[in-house]
Design a protein around this nucleic acid. Structure first.
Lengths: 339, 339
DNA sequence: ATTAGCAGTCGAATAGATAGAGTGCTAACA
DNA sequence: TGTTAGCACTCTATCTATTCGACTGCTAAT
């Protein structure tokens, strides 16, 4: 069932105005600023119908209207005016990705940070499924007498390196060879495959076995997600600047949410395949209201992960969308230049 | 001027009770739970004297007493009962330092996190002056066609590694030699010395010049402190669990403080040379009340940095002290085993 | 020096009362 | 049938007045 043009205009007016003021919008507000050719009584009739249809809410009988999740969805998909980024904002984004773009977690962190800075919301970025990353090479180097660094280069970038303990009497040669052999064994395989490596390494020389086991155990830690290398969140405290979280109870529940990757991940998963995903949680009595808007990060049609924001559902969708679109675009290009 | 034993007992009672309840303590509270042999009137006389002397405050005339910073200081230095850690807490701490203890920022992060977990406050850890760290070796390894990783091992641990861009047609040999030469040139020098390296590298072969410049520029980034590698803070949102920050304005001001390294650093610096440093900021009308308690991390008499907590001045000093002492002890031993 | 007793002070909680914002409805109108 | 003016109604936010209770500070007696 589609809405009349006038109803859509009213929804657009209410969302725009509510994003601006964070206060319930009255019929006369709309009349004055958006539809002067109508009377407030007519608008009241429309508002009443839209409430009935689930687009609007009333905090109480003698208050104005507030958009519901349904209204935001419609606004986002159809009604909002597209905004462009300013030159300085684009520059800020580009600057965030100059240099040090090799390690995956650095990329994610920079992404989340720059999103947070420009939108004044909490920025998030993550790699969808690190287990699906293809290994392109593995390097092992001795650093001190008894420790070596393992560097795993994947299709998505360099995994955060890790140190392993080694025996002082292993010759340097050993690591050069182990690097070559490990690369040969694992290159082209995903991390998922590499963590159950029986078939991959069946004919590895016994002398490299211990090192291989160390590598596999490292990969397992990455894959298990118990570390947060594939997930970055920045600007959590920006939440407190939003009037909807003035209440300490709500502020706390939001900050706890942002701290828990387990609670956050389900909110990020998208149902469809569209570029953007908008997930709105309407406020209940004890839960805070919030929305998560993410953009898919793709490369040659392959989904790398997502970047986005979390904030009140009353966020500036058009600006956030512009930022995310620019970043999504940027990141796919970035990897191209890398090659 | 020293206090009578009875006055000290009263301060101890008030601080203990206030830490527990976060409510002003009345004369009859003290009488009931701490000094039943006295009458509340006598205690009132003492309270009045202690207020005069600056140890106690009164939110308003008809309220009980609240400790001032001066009272906390005395309590911390002399009056508090020392608590021991439980076995499970000690185990938790030890577990936090198993494995991956090579990179400095990892150590700091783990330290801050485990402190935060056990104390339920915000944990901090930092390296006092990374510029004073002595370089023990520098390694450069090619990772991909056009990038190499630079690993700088110092007396404090491994600096977070960084990638540098390289030209694809440089042979692998080059990096092996560059590592050796860079180590020879820089080993034994502090980062401070290495960033103005004219005298160190005067007779370096021209062909390594570009690489050396890349290394020096890396060191400069570390030394400048524009990155936060030498500083870790964990559990910021724990702040919100404390009743003194129920007020959103105060909560926000605390969280902003925790986000700003520039504002935080002055609070951490210690005047004296004692093991612990306690810095109490009494609440004013617009500023929140908080205290910073840190322990020096030392090794062979050399100061590595500090670890500590930031929270309300009404924190459980004896528990926090026990945790920090254990961690301080642990970290110096840790580096020993490393060798 | 200690204590009982009491007046005095201040904040927190409660209850009306009031003003204002905004709606929903009714009846008139185009 | 859609639009509008007008008005009664509802609900909140704010203010004031009042009460209640917690503690103190002081005085006078021990």
């Amino acid at each position: 069932m589609s809405l009349s043009e006038r109803k859509e205009k009213i929804i657009q007016a209410i969302v725009d105005e509510y994003i601006d003021t964070c206060e319930p919008i009255s019929s006369s507000d709309i009349q004055k600023n958006y539809l002067p050719e109508l009377s407030s009584a007519t608008i009241r009739n429309e508002l009443s119908a839209l409430s009935e249809m689930g687009y609007l809410d009333q905090p109480h009988t003698s208050a104005g209207r507030v958009p519901t999740a349904q209204a935001y969805q419609l606004y986002f998909e159809k009604l909002m005016s597209k905004k462009a980024l300013s030159k300085s904002e684009e520059q800020l984004i580009r600057k965030a990705f100059e240099g040090k773009i090799n390690e995956i977690d650095e990329v994610l962190r920079s992404t989340a940070r720059v999103i947070s800075e420009i939108t004044s919301l909490t920025g998030i970025a993550y790699v969808e499924d690190i287990k699906k990353a293809k290994i392109s090479s593995i390097k092992i180097f001795r650093i001190t007498e008894d420790s070596a660094i393992v560097i795993i280069v994947t299709s998505l970038g360099v995994l955060k390196d890790s140190f392993i303990g080694i025996s002082p009497d292993v010759p340097d040669d050993y690591f050069r060879n182990a690097s070559i052999i490990a690369t040969e064994a694992f290159a082209g395989h995903t991390i998922d495959e590499a963590i159950s490596p029986e078939d991959i390494i069946k004919d590895i020389n016994m002398q490299y076995k211990a090192t291989f086991e160390a590598i596999v155990s490292l990969l397992k830690t990455y894959a298990s997600g118990s570390k947060n290398y594939e997930f970055a969140i920045e600007g959590s405290s920006k939440i407190l600047d939003q009037p909807e979280y003035e209440d300490v109870v709500k502020a706390r529940s939001m900050l706890k949410l942002l701290e828990s990757k387990e609670k956050l991940m389900p909110l990020l998963s998208s149902a469809g395949d569209s570029e953007f995903t908008l997930n709105i949680q309407n406020a209940s009595s004890d839960e805070a209201d919030y929305a998560v808007l993410t953009v898919n990060l793709e490369k040659d049609g392959v989904n790398l992960g997502k970047a986005g924001v979390i904030g009140p559902s009353r966020m500036d969708y058009s600006k956030v969308t512009a930022v995310l679109a620019y970043i999504g675009n940027m990141l796919s290009k970035l990897r191209d230049e890398d090659k």
